[in-house]
């Protein structure tokens, strides 16, 4: 079974986000970048499936040269191959661009696949679009936001999280799955894995190699403004006997804030 995992390099969730108003973009200086947390679940799931069913895991990332770091991490976790699709165009919160690039790569370079694993969302841009868009562009079934996955023969049995419930879907392979927290506990890289990943070549594909040109990738979205969220006004903080404190909080909620 050929498994593909799609991963993105994103700012660490601890990051404080600063805006550069001159360039109308996020100031990347001083930001620490990591493998998107949801993609770690996708990667772990691929490893578990390979452990039980056999197969090969290829990890793909679309981005700048710097994305090599997250690809290396996936190789260190146990991935077989990694490929960088080089795209130096800065992020503009447009999932369709990435999805078109990935779909084109699958159509032209990696036509033999059973399972395409994504994270449910790349933190940062927070689009939560790419997996589903790839499924649409390749005409594949999709199960998005998955917390449990079983592969039985030619079928995937996936449970996807919805409001207060989960939906069970039986979909034939090849299928697009996106991972939600809860799917598994990602493993750490082993020292041996890290050493092997270091030596491993990561082939690079360009948009040209895929037969894509910029005119087919234009975004309909035009970023007009970036701003920081309005700062919250400091409120009242009290220290008092529990009964009095509780009473005052409820008074605040009822008479002042009028939410209860």
């Amino acid at each position: 079974m050929n498994i593909f995992v799609f991963v993105k390099r994103v700012p660490d969730t601890e990051s404080k986000i600063r805006i550069n108003h001159e360039t109308n973009s996020i100031d990347e200086e001083g930001l620490k970048f990591v493998l998107n947390p949801y993609d770690e679940y996708a990667m772990e799931e691929a490893l578990r499936i390979r452990e039980s069913k056999g197969g090969k895991i290829t990890v793909l990332s679309v981005g700048t040269e710097e994305s090599t770091v997250v690809l290396k991490k996936c190789l260190a976790m146990g991935g077989d191959e990694a490929v960088l699709i080089k795209d130096d165009t800065p992020e503009r919160y447009n999932g369709l661009r990435t999805a078109k690039i990935i779909a084109q790569a699958m159509k032209t370079k990696f036509t033999d696949y059973s399972l395409l694993l994504f994270g449910k969302q790349a933190v940062g841009a927070d689009n939560a679009q790419v997996s589903v868009m790839v499924a649409a562009l390749l005409g594949l079934p999709q199960v998005n936001v998955v917390t449990k996955l079983e592969i039985e023969g030619n079928m995937a049995v996936a449970y996807r999280e919805i409001e207060g419930a989960s939906e069970k879907v039986n979909a034939p392979l090849p299928v697009v799955i996106s991972a939600q927290k809860g799917l598994n506990e990602p493993r750490y890289e082993t020292l041996k894995g890290i050493m092997m990943a270091k030596r491993k070549e990561i082939p690079v594909l360009t948009l040209q190699d895929l037969g894509l040109d910029e005119s087919s990738l234009v975004s309909q979205l035009e970023l007009v403004k970036l701003e920081s969220p309005p700062a919250r006004q400091a409120g009242t903080v009290i220290e008092d006997e529990p009964e009095t404190a509780a009473k005052r909080m409820v008074e605040f909620l009822h008479s002042e804030a009028k939410v209860v």
Partner: peptide
């Protein structure tokens, strides 16, 4: 969390929760 709260209590939640529930019941 107390820096973003509109109203905060510095105290033990286990002691605050029971009277809080009673007070909420009253206003509701």
């Amino acid at each position: 969390i107390l820096k973003v709260a509109d109203f905060g209590i510095v105290g033990d939640l286990f002691q605050v929760l029971p009277p809080l529930k009673e007070e909420l019941k009253k206003v509701l």
